[in-house]
Design a protein around this nucleic acid. Structure first.
Length: 275
DNA sequence: AGATGTCCCTGGAAGC
DNA sequence: TGCTTCCAGGGACATC
């Protein structure tokens, strides 16, 4: 499932190739998460200036307006510079396609948790509603110990749940939340406001390390697709705890445990990770 | 207002 | 083998 590293690698896979492309045709498939029915006419003849990312959203900045894309949990984007005639026909899970002067952008999403939303600008209420509540970017300078600690202090929920919520720090999904907590040796059910400042710092560094590793792996994945058609797939991360319930901890051999927090699975080592 | 629960969707795995 | 059931996940929304 695409978390921040996957989304960023997807962005890198086509941002340079799509810049200055003019939108010539828009095809909509089945409705996605928010059936807002973007008006295809609205996109025609607009130019893609660049592609940015905010949290797990990709933002296609147009010469007028912005297209927000979310990959949900099963979505993938592909930008093909090939001739349209050389592309496979649209499949049942291709829900959105932009034909441009520089290639074709397709969103494939079997489970349809993804989203395509058009906003006149980032000040548009629909864009603000989706983006304004998002927390700080974990791989940028703004992710400081001071603000991270302050954010956690304001809550009374488990540290795992707080990480997932995305309003303190973005981009840490269910996999990397478990992995980062293992890395920082923090028990997932510990109340976030009770984590000491030094341990919050460990967690901050762990989040960055885990995401950077995934990003580096994704980067190499990308390079292997030398034609760079953007089909990145998902990273085969060497998980320390995620989905390893019952298997020995790679550090101490204690069997990894699985619990449920907020209807999500959490994996941890009861010996390595302390309350 | 903050915390928690529910729901959306469908492929794949597990169970019978 | 072929059916049914369950599970995974991000995040909006409802409810406590």
């Amino acid at each position: 499932m695409p978390e921040l590293p996957e989304v960023e690698v997807t962005r890198l896979s086509f941002v340079e190739r799509i810049e200055n492309a003019i939108i010539q045709k828009v095809v909509m498939g089945k409705p996605l998460r928010w059936p807002l029915g973007i008006d295809p006419e609205e996109l025609l003849l607009k130019t893609v200036i660049t592609v940015k990312r905010r949290g797990k959203y990709l933002l296609l900045q147009l010469d007028q307006g912005v297209l927000l894309l979310h990959l949900g949990m099963s979505g993938s984007l592909r930008f093909d510079s090939e001739q349209p005639s050389k592309l496979p026909p649209l499949g049942p899970h291709d829900h959105f396609q932009l034909t441009t002067s520089k290639g074709i952008l397709r969103l494939n999403d079997p489970r349809r948790f993804g989203a395509v939303v058009y906003a006149n600008s980032l000040q548009d209420p629909i864009a603000k509603k989706l983006l304004d509540k998002l927390g700080v970017e974990p791989l940028q300078d703004g992710f400081t110990l001071a603000q991270f600690y302050a954010g956690l202090q304001k809550r009374r929920t488990s540290i795992k749940t707080a990480l997932l919520a995305g309003d303190i720090v973005v981009g840490v999904g269910n996999i990397y939340a478990s992995e980062a907590l293992f890395e920082a040796k923090i028990h997932p059910t510990k109340l976030c406001c009770d984590v000491s400042k030094p341990r919050v710092e460990k967690l901050r560094l762990a989040i960055q390390k885990v995401l950077q590793n995934a990003l580096a792996q994704g980067g190499s994945t990308l390079q292997n697709f030398s034609s760079a058609e953007g089909q990145t797939g998902y990273f085969q991360l060497q998980a320390n705890v995620y989905a390893r319930q019952g298997e020995p901890c790679r550090v101490c051999s204690t069997p990894i445990l699985q619990i449920t927090q907020g209807q999500r699975s959490t994996f941890y080592c009861s010996k390595c990770q302390k309350k």
